[in-house]
Write a protein that binds this DNA or RNA. Structure first.
Lengths: 211, 211
DNA sequence: CGAGCGCTTGACCGGCGTCAACACCCGTGG
DNA sequence: CCACGGGTGTTGACGCCGGTCAAGCGCTCG
């Protein structure tokens, strides 16, 4: 209940339309650009990637969403979504139809404030993504991604993605991503914790930052 | 009056705080990250760049704003700005104190809708910027920038920036930008119209798009 | 055990960065 | 009027980072 955290009882009684709790499997798409609006989603657990296809047919990941983020805000003012949303892990979300937002929002100042905060966070995330992950050498990009994907409750842990996805995030080729990660491991800056190459421990965050 | 286009007389009478019309010279900064919020700006004429400084001290331009855009929306929910805003040309803006927005918004549904549309446009612009201008070869990036900066009322005309600024937008070095532009001119895809290298005519937009 | 997928690693190549020289525009001052 | 200097843009030579192509490894699942 990211958006409704501090609504009154009476606010809730105004809701007649159902709010669905949904689960998505790893790899399944919550929505794509062609689909009509089915509402906005608040992300409870898991990670979601927002994907666009460039003019020349390649995939570009424009942002990663994590628990607490809102997915698909754009349909509040637009009939369709701006990108595809694909689950990177098992994902559980809460889907809220657009008209529920408008009914509640009609005379609810606090919801407007919460929405505005979500918009602001989205813009900031987008700008951060551009400034931190798409600038500089391959090594800098990979380092910054490892830092950005740290676990909120244990900043030594970080979990990343398939090498292909990382390429689409950082504008690098899979092979380059692989090389940089293994280089960081040889230098003992990071340490692999699983067998699949997704979970790492950061042993020297200083060095990652000053790359 | 981008935001207040369809407000009632009575809405306006609620405003006591002054709304300033301001002018900025080319190169002057409207605000920077350290400055306290002085309100949001609607851009009437000219162009503004939003700039961030990366960890390693280089400048990154995250977006260009043009007439009709709103500058500094983030201070509606945050005490300070997320980036520096610098005038790329002579600029005239309309500055609206934050509390005016809140006073008007308290019971004005249409203003909320307008604001939401501005937020959505901002996110879309940010994502477009990432997907179109920071992906692919130098030639593709320069081509896409020329397309994005076309004049709204004459799509054959496009006006760009200093080579250094273009580098900070596209994550390329000045020299590379210069080479690509001159290459496009030799191929007669574009044609320079001024002596400073800012205004061009697009002679073959097909070719620019399919690069 | 073998097929298939994702990841790693090596060899090679090309595009972009680096460094430097130079052209051009403009303002200033002689 | 020209001489000069600084800022911006262009162009060339060269080197290196990251892309390309290909082989091989290690899982997982049939």
């Amino acid at each position: 209940m990211v958006l409704f955290a501090d609504l009154d009882e009476q606010d809730f009684s105004a809701i007649h339309t159902p709010i669905d709790d949904l689960e998505f499997k790893k790899g399944s798409t919550l929505y794509d650009r062609s689909s009509r609006s089915q509402g906005i989603y608040t992300l409870r657990t898991g990670m979601v990637k927002l994907v666009r296809v460039t003019a020349d047919g390649r995939q570009r990941i424009v942002r990663i969403l994590r628990p607490g983020d809102v997915v698909g805000l754009e349909v509040l003012t637009s009939p369709c979504y701006d990108s595809d949303a694909v689950a990177l892990t098992e994902v559980s979300v809460c889907r809220i139809p657009v008209d529920v937002i408008f009914k509640l929002g009609a005379n609810n100042q606090r919801l407007h404030l919460k929405l505005m905060q979500k918009w602001q966070q989205t813009v900031k995330d987008a700008d951060d993504w551009l400034a931190d992950l798409n600038f500089g050498t391959a090594r800098q990009r990979v380092s910054n991604l490892m830092l950005k994907m740290r676990s909120p409750d244990d900043p030594e842990m970080t979990t990343i993605f398939s090498r292909d996805d990382m390429g689409a995030m950082l504008d690098l080729k899979m092979e380059t991503v692989s090389r940089e990660i293994n280089q960081l491991m040889r230098e003992e800056v990071i340490e692999q914790l699983d067998r699949l190459g997704r979970v790492y421990r950061i042993r020297n965050s200083e060095l990652l930052m000053t790359n």
